[in-house]
Nucleic acid binder design. Structure first.
Length: 627
DNA sequence: GCCGTTTTCGGCCCGACTGTTTTCAGTCG
């Protein structure tokens, strides 16, 4: 029998899930912690090492793994299944696990709600709060009840949007699937996903096809489709189990580019484009570009969707590498010829469409109606940074703190990406929960990094850094003599998010003014769709960074993506240097830079303005000069 | 559930904050 065991990270996830379930069952908290510690221990070793230890029956030589965990790990590794886990899962209402996502609700309170009010899911909890029953429970009160309700409401409100990263993955699969259909001539994802927005509402796919029936049929039959909300000749809509909605729009081939442009938006960009067309005696819409006085547009049946400009999703066409249009075709030229005849203007690419209106090609990420059309008219659009421009990345974690891959594994991953360098920045000692490094452990890691560099085992040069906590008073977590031994420091706030704006701003600026600070990490602490930014005067922080020659990172973790793109254009014009930092906690996390590239492009950033597009030698010189 | 070993049981574990209390339990990072 072919074995289908689990990888170490999958096993770690199971152990961690067991911890959560035991917690909900009210188990001894130390037992819970033992499972969580076991998960962490597992993450801290190499895949091959795990196999070797299991083989030799030496799992228990690892700190934190005893007899019980050892047996479970071995079984999961061998079979991918664990009876104990299955039974445990079956014994806990799944709704309780979901309730853990509500801020302020932990295992104890959830248990009380279940045992005393028989609440087993969020729907029941909502009703009990509305009835006022929750406030009457021992240990609960009016404020707690209010907070729970607010948490649930937020969840619902946020639930309507999705992280770009998650939506992009879904969209890529759909685009690839549509491309494989023989009836499909052209397909692109549009919407806010194509514009690289940090979150997206739903997905929009524009398709030109020789025959619509089979395409619609494929679309509504995709795996994961929970509900088909519309199904017609020109449009189909589905909702996935995840809550994500996807729209398919079928258009004639000669309308494809117009529909793509229209549904990519944004609304403001489209309004300005239409105005520009009108000024040239033309009328632009999703249906085409026509002489302005000529009646045109959809037949009666097609109307309706035309006026709807949503913040919807789409897939970044560049990612596929397959896009034939738009590529560098930057023709100058007016739309004069366009109005010449009575027939609609035909274009094959968006670049041609822009050219018809006297514009250079405007990349989707810039289409926010924030001056891109004026810049495109004057030929002043920047050459935006591209994913391929990256030569490395800073701010990455290893198993030394809370990462899931070792230093060597991360270095190997950087090699695989063809990067010239990789910056390590594990947590500092005050981040206890993230297993932050104390002085001794940090120095040991620095020595390890120097030795690896000397050994030439990896092509990528490793920079020794730290993600140093900014303490509540703005001082750094380590003394200057220690920090001086590192190549660079990322300074980040991880505690006391509740400080008022003045205090938080002062705190961060003090950290920026520290002579050892090289970069500022996740400036606002926001977690997209989950947690608001802490209160901070970002403008003052940018001023301070500029004054002190400190880099502000674009934290490319799909949940963070700050400093927000809306600040970058102006800040970079003033000379603020950027670094696209993946904040990777495992090797696959290095791929987050792709989300960071979106932010940089939306911020009009050019390659030169981003540290980790520079060649290794230049980065080294820059760091030397700073030190 | 793990660990240690002058232990086979008793301790593991940090600090801040909030809301509930009247001295503290629960949550969070």
């Amino acid at each position: 029998m072919f074995s289908s065991g689990m990888t170490k990270n999958e096993i770690a996830d199971v152990l961690s899930d067991i911890g959560t379930l035991l917690e909900l069952k009210g188990e001894n908290p130390f037992k819970v912690r033992a499972y969580q510690a076991g998960a962490r221990t597992l993450e801290a070793i190499e895949e091959a090492e795990l196999a070797r230890l299991i083989e030799k029956g030496e799992l228990q030589t690892m700190k934190g793994i005893g007899e019980a965990l050892g047996l479970k790990i071995a079984e999961l590794h061998r079979t991918g299944r664990l009876e104990f886990f299955e039974k445990l899962k079956a014994s806990v209402e799944p709704g309780l696990v979901e309730m853990l996502q509500i801020p302020g609700l932990g295992p104890k309170k959830i248990r009380a709600l279940r045992d005393k009010l028989w609440i087993v899911d969020i729907a029941g909890l909502t009703q009990a709060c509305l009835d006022g029953r929750v406030a009457e429970l021992d240990g609960f009160g009016a404020k707690t009840q209010e907070k729970i309700l607010a948490g649930i409401r937020n969840r619902e409100a946020y639930g309507r949007r999705h992280l770009w990263w998650d939506a992009a993955e879904v969209a890529a699969g759909i685009v690839a699937g549509l491309r494989r259909l023989q009836q499909v001539q052209r397909v692109e994802a549009a919407g806010s996903l194509r514009r690289g927005m940090e979150t997206v509402g739903d997905l929009d796919f524009i398709v030109a096809a020789s025959e619509v029936g089979p395409v619609v049929e494929w679309f509504v039959s995709m795996p994961g489709v929970n509900e088909v909300t519309a199904r017609g000749e020109t449009k189909a809509s589905v909702r996935f189990d995840s809550g994500l909605q996807a729209d398919l729009r079928l258009v004639p081939s000669d309308q494809f580019v117009f529909a793509l442009h229209h549904f990519t938006g944004s609304k403001d960009h489209n309004v300005q484009m239409r105005q520009r067309a009108l000024a040239r005696g033309l009328s632009l819409s999703e249906w085409g570009l026509f002489p302005a006085d000529e009646k045109h547009g959809p037949s009666e049946g097609q109307r309706g969707s035309g006026e709807r400009m949503t913040e919807d999703g789409g897939q970044r066409a560049e990612d596929t590498g397959l896009r034939a249009d738009d590529g560098g075709l930057r023709t100058e030229g007016g739309g004069q010829s366009a109005g010449g005849g009575q027939r609609p203007v035909l274009v094959q690419t968006e670049a041609e469409l822009f050219a018809k209106l006297g514009l250079h090609y405007i990349p989707p990420e810039l289409r926010e109606g924030l001056g891109e059309i004026e810049a495109a008219e004057k030929g002043e659009l920047p050459r935006l940074v591209e994913h391929a421009d990256l030569r490395g990345a800073f701010h990455n974690h290893t198993t030394a703190s809370d990462g899931r891959n070792t230093l060597a594994e991360m270095a190997a991953a950087a090699d695989a990406l063809g990067w010239e360098y990789l910056g390590i920045a594990d947590h500092s000692k005050t981040s206890v929960v993230a297993n932050g490094l104390n002085e001794e452990r940090l120095l040991r890691q620095v020595a390890e990094i120097r030795a690896l560099n000397a050994s030439k085992r990896f092509k990528a040069h490793l920079f020794a850094g730290v993600e140093c906590d900014i303490l509540p008073d703005g001082t750094l977590d380590f003394d200057e003599p220690l920090l001086r031994q590192l190549d660079y420091i990322v300074a980040s706030v991880h505690s006391l998010f509740s400080q008022d704006e003045a205090t938080m701003t002062k705190r961060i600026i003090r950290a920026i003014e520290h002579p050892c600070t090289v970069m500022l990490g996740h400036v606002t602490g926001r977690l997209l769709l989950r947690r608001e930014a802490y209160r901070v005067d970002v403008a003052k922080v940018i001023d301070a960074a500029l004054a002190n020659g400190v880099i502000i990172e674009i934290n490319a973790h799909p949940n963070r993506l700050d400093l927000d793109w809306r600040h970058w254009r102006k800040a970079a014009e003033r000379g603020l240097l950027c670094s696209i930092n993946p904040d990777a906690h495992d090797t696959s996390g290095l791929g987050h830079v792709r989300a960071g590239i979106n932010v940089a492009r939306k911020g009009w950033l050019r390659r030169e303005q981003i540290l980790n597009t520079w060649p290794l030698a230049q980065v080294g010189e820059w760091m030397q000069a700073r030190a």
